[in-house]
């Protein structure tokens, strides 16, 4: 969001959708009791498993979220793969 947009009260997200997004994360955290530490641990282990099949998976680059769906909640992980190292293995 640009400085000028902010200045002139322009396109900020409506606060209700911000509230909803925040609540989704909070409720999932409340329900699954995932602390930041256990989440970090999970990332390290995910990176460990994936590294057996893929080159250069960095645990610190992984983003893990739990999203609330209508029937189920979902675990969503974004795992960047480093390019330009085709000679591994």
């Amino acid at each position: 969001m640009g400085f000028f947009e902010n200045l002139f009260g322009g396109r900020r997200d409506p606060s209700a959708s911000v509230a909803k997004q925040r609540l989704m994360m909070v409720l999932v955290d409340d329900r699954y009791k995932l602390t930041p530490e256990t989440l970090e641990q999970m990332k390290v282990e995910i990176a460990g498993v994936l590294s057996r099949y893929l080159p250069a998976v960095d645990a610190e680059q992984i983003e893990v979220k739990i999203l609330r769906g209508e029937v189920n909640d979902y675990l969503k992980a974004d795992i960047p793969l480093k390019r330009g190292q085709p000679d591994v293995g």
Binding site: P14, A16, K20, M24, R68, E70
Partner: peptide, 19 residues
């Protein structure tokens, strides 16, 4: 009025969250 302006969670939002 706030719901219509997108500045308050709607009943649908709350239902979706609490199910």
């Amino acid at each position: 009025r706030l719901v219509n302006r997108g500045e308050m969670l709607s009943v649908e939002d709350v239902l979706e969250l609490l199910a």
